[in-house]
Amino acid sequence: MTPELDPVIHAQARLRVVVTLNALPEGDQIAFPGLKDLLGMTAGNLSVHLGKLEEAGYVEIVKTHRGRTPATYVALTRRGRLAFEEYTAAIRTLLDTTSAPPSGA
């Protein structure tokens, strides 16, 4: 049986976003420019992916102000962390079944 891979996470760029946010301790948020630099993505590209992740309820986007300049902070939601956990588990299961020796099939 092949486990379902979450289509929201199962795309290179979004997977990298989720992995990065997952490395952030719970209760922390990262500024949009910091995340952009860490991922090496363009702002537009990252925004699109974050939008999709937010739509799925995996990411929380907070718009605020740092002094007078607007600032955007991003964090993985609890649901997002769970989804990522399930995704890595599914990938590992997939690997185990494909790398296991063929049993009579």
Binding site: N22, L38, N45, T88, L95, T98
Partner: peptide, 21 residues
């Protein structure tokens, strides 16, 4: 970016990105 990779490649991508983060 959106091209789906094989499970091995995805796992490697996770490891690499996690260490960078």
């Amino acid at each position: 970016d959106d091209r789906a990779l094989s499970p091995e490649e995805m796992l490697r991508l996770i490891d690499r990105q996690d260490s960078a983060a």
